[in-house]
């Protein structure tokens, strides 16, 4: 009887089921420590296992819920979606599948919101949507969000989570790195604040563009962050890499980021940063 209440993690190769959001069911078994977690505990702990501190991937909607003021989020550019510029086989089908499974149009959600009453522009990437890869649509949404922040003189917060550039759009995906970074240059020229929160995983073309250009770069505890994938480096060097290689803590040690933050403290830290950069408070 009780067994039915416990939903076990099924092992599956498909990334979409592996990278799930906080699961349904009353009890859940932690994939790391295998202990049972009461669903409500998981929700209240923002998707962190109360026993072993394992971080579940968070959907953008939940991320926004735990980060910004209740009811303050207004989504921008909801309808921007991918097309198939290279006529790449099966790409459209793939997009449709992920749209269905994640109930989102693309691998990023952008919008206006408030943190403790202060206006911000926020973008949250979704690693469940084709590994959070950046193609034209993701690049466009992020660029529009940056431009919106520049025009309205608002601070910008981006939560990154991406496997890198989206292969199926070839060179056009590479150009999104230039597009987003150029838009950030204008935001920077306007003297506006840009805070990045690197979440698990942030790699490839996203690391080599807007993810590393924040005035302040935070990383969520335990996140994997790097340019090249671990497997690629291991194959190139023909040696095993240390366990903590490319972890948030590793990047902090090497001077690449400003702080490693626990998931439930991110809002507080962002609020403090925003307050310290707010012109009104200086008066």
């Amino acid at each position: 009887m009780l067994d039915n209440l416990i939903k076990k993690t099924k092992k599956c190769d498909k990334p979409i089921t592996k990278k799930r959001d906080i699961p349904d069911g009353i009890f859940y078994q932690c994939p790391k420590c295998k202990k049972s977690i009461y669903k409500l505990d998981l929700r209240q702990g923002a998707g962190v296992c109360p026993h072993c501190n394992y971080y579940y991937p968070v959907s953008p909607k939940n991320r926004i819920n735990i980060t910004v003021d209740k009811g303050s989020f207004r989504e921008l550019d909801v309808n921007v979606t991918s097309v198939n510029p290279l006529d790449f086989p099966e790409y459209e089908d793939k997009i449709e599948t992920y749209k269905y499974k994640t109930e989102q149009n693309e691998a990023v959600i952008t919008g206006r919101a408030k943190i403790e009453g202060r206006n911000i522009i926020i973008a949250v990437m979704d690693s469940r949507f084709m590994m959070g890869s950046m193609g034209s649509a993701v690049g466009e949404k992020i660029t529009r969000a940056i431009e919106y922040a520049t025009v309205h003189k608002l601070p910008l917060i981006i939560f990154t989570a991406s496997g890198g550039a989206r292969m199926q759009e070839g060179i056009l995906s590479l150009m999104q790195m230039a597009k987003t970074s150029s838009a950030l240059a204008k935001h920077d020229d306007a003297g506006l604040l840009y805070v990045v929160v690197l979440t698990d995983p942030t790699t490839g073309g996203v690391t080599a563009s807007f993810a590393m250009l924040g005035d302040i770069i935070l990383a969520e505890e335990g996140a994997l962050i790097g340019f090249a994938g671990r497997r690629v480096i291991e194959q190139t060097l023909k040696q095993k890499l240390p366990q903590d290689f490319q972890s948030a803590e590793f990047l902090l040690d090497h001077g690449m980021i400003d702080s490693v933050v626990k998931r439930d403290e991110i809002r507080t830290v962002l609020d403090r940063i925003l307050r310290l950069h707010s012109k009104e408070d200086k008066k």
């Binding site: 309808n79 921007v80 979606t81 097309v83 034209s136 056009l172 150029s182």
Partner: peptide
């Protein structure tokens, strides 16, 4: 700025 092809759902 203009690089990329996307649609509107």
């Amino acid at each position: 700025r203009k690089y990329g092809e996307f649609g509107m759902a």
